[in-house]
Every structure is written in structure tokens, then in C-alpha cells.
Amino acid sequence: MILLVEDDVMIGRTVVQGLSARGHVVRWLRHGAGLLDVLIVGGIAVVLLDVGLPDGDGFALCRAMRAAGHTMPVLMLTARGALDDRLEGFDAGADDYLPKPFAFAELAARVAVLVRRSAQLLPPPIAFAGLTLDRLTGEVRRDDRPVVAEPRTLALLGELVRARGAIVPRQRVIDAVWGEDAVISDNTLDVAVSALRRRLADVAPDLAVRAVRGQGLHLVVH
């Protein structure tokens, strides 16, 4: 999964849509405050980190990531493209640095390089009840065959597989599938859960998504 930390809505939407179209699962944070919490949960292959965030400095966040032991590649995004700024980014622990404005094709190419690098750092896939989740791509497989579904359905399934049967709070599901600060109604989440249930009925009929009132969702074995 790619984690994008960017407060500019236009840039954020362009990056999310473009990378999703290239097969990446992307989670978008509009503030830096939740970054370390997301990394603790796991499953992040690459971080795209804006320097000028409304609640903090991207360089400081990158240093905090490295201090906490997170080793995934970081690509800094910023309008500050002077040499001293780039050097500060590398000193903070960044792996790459892309000044704004940038061409999406260049961003995608740099992300592809970092994703390949990240593959050498990530632990083995997460396995639960015959499903495996690739921590790098977000792909879910059953019996060595990929589960093909709409991106949000796959993101929802991946979050439930990551929990290995434990209950995932509804808000965490929303954050993982739609992004932090997304305004999602209960009906929207229910529609996504229904789509996942239909997909599981085809590819993994021994599994079901169960909703626990007041708590969240989890995968169960029939």
C-alpha cells in the first residue's frame, strides 16, 4: 500500500486516482498527525510525504519515522526545490525528493522504483484462513490466485485479512478504504461490505464478513 500524506486536495486526488489506476492501493492522509499510527498498523510499502503540512513539517515527520524504526522508502513532495531543501530532506531520512509542480508520469516512475526497493524490506505476506495479503501491493490471493475486485472492495478485504479475524473498528475501516477525514455514511460502508460478501461467496465461500454492533467488522470462518 502507498501512503500519501498531502493536504492539497487537487494534488491528493490526482495522485490517488493515478496510482490506483496503475494497480496500487493508496491511502491518503491530509494531516501529518496520524502518520505514525498508520505505520504502526503495518502494510505500508512507500510513503509520499508533503513537506508543508498544516499541522507540522514533513522533514520532522520523516525524522520521527526513522527514529521509530520505520524503514520503508519515503518520497518527499514540496514546492521548496532549492538544493539546501533537497539536502535537508535527504538528511531527514528521505529516499527521494520531487519538487512541485511535477508531472504525474515522473511521480509514478519514482514510486515504481521505490516499490521495488520496498519489496526487499517488507516481511512475508499476511495469511489468514486461506487468504494471503501482499504487504507491498495490497493484493489478496486465494489458493495462489488473485482476488479480482473493485479497488475499494480489495482495500476492505485487505484490512480485514490484516486483522487476522480480530474485529476492526468501523472508523479504521473507513480510514483505510476511503482515507482519513472522509465523510462516509453507514449506508456507503454497508454497500461496500455487501460487495465484499458477494465476492467472497465466489472465491472463498467458507469465509464471511460479520458486523459486530457497536464494535466493527471481522472475517469469520463458516
Rank of each mutant, 00 (worst) to 15 (best):
M1D: 02
L3F: 11
L4A: 10
V5N: 02
E6D: 06
E6R: 01
E6N: 01
R13M: 13
R13W: 09
R13C: 08
V15F: 03
V15G: 01
Q17M: 11
Q17C: 05
Q17N: 13
R22E: 13
G23H: 05
H24V: 03
V26T: 05
R27A: 01
R30H: 07
G32Y: 13
A33E: 06
G34N: 08
G34W: 03
L35I: 05
L39E: 01
I40A: 15
I40N: 13
G43C: 03
G43S: 06
I44Q: 04
A45N: 04
V47G: 00
L48K: 02
L48T: 06
L49M: 15
G52A: 06
G52S: 04
P54Q: 04
G56M: 05
D57G: 12
D57V: 12
C62N: 05
C62M: 15
M65C: 11
H70Y: 15
V74C: 08
V74F: 00
L77V: 04
T78L: 00
G81K: 06
G81I: 06
L83S: 14
D84H: 14
L87G: 09
F90K: 09
D91V: 07
G93Q: 03
G93R: 08
D96M: 03
L98C: 08
P101Y: 08
A103L: 14
F104C: 11
E106C: 10
L107S: 07
L107A: 06
R110G: 05
V113W: 04
V115N: 02
V115T: 12
S118E: 01
S118I: 00
A119K: 15
Q120K: 14
Q120E: 12
I126A: 12
I126S: 05
I126Q: 11
A127D: 13
F128K: 09
A129M: 08
A129D: 11
L131Y: 06
R135C: 05
R135F: 00
L136C: 15
L136P: 00
E139Q: 14
R141V: 14
R141P: 00
R142K: 14
D144I: 02
D144Y: 12
P146C: 05
V147A: 05
V148C: 12
V148F: 10
A149C: 00
E150G: 10
L154K: 07
L156S: 09
L157W: 03
E159R: 13
R162Y: 07
A163W: 03
A163N: 06
R164Y: 12
R170T: 05
D175P: 04
D175T: 08
A176G: 07
G179T: 07
G179R: 08
E180F: 14
D181S: 12
D181H: 15
L189T: 10
L189F: 01
D190Q: 10
D190L: 12
A192Q: 14
A192K: 12
V193G: 05
R197N: 10
R197L: 01
R199S: 06
R199W: 01
L200K: 02
L200A: 02
A201K: 11
D202S: 11
D202G: 08
P205T: 13
P205E: 07
D206F: 01
D206M: 07
D206L: 14
A208N: 09
A208F: 02
R210M: 12
A211Y: 09
G214H: 11
Q215M: 14
G216F: 03
G216S: 01
H218S: 11
V221G: 10
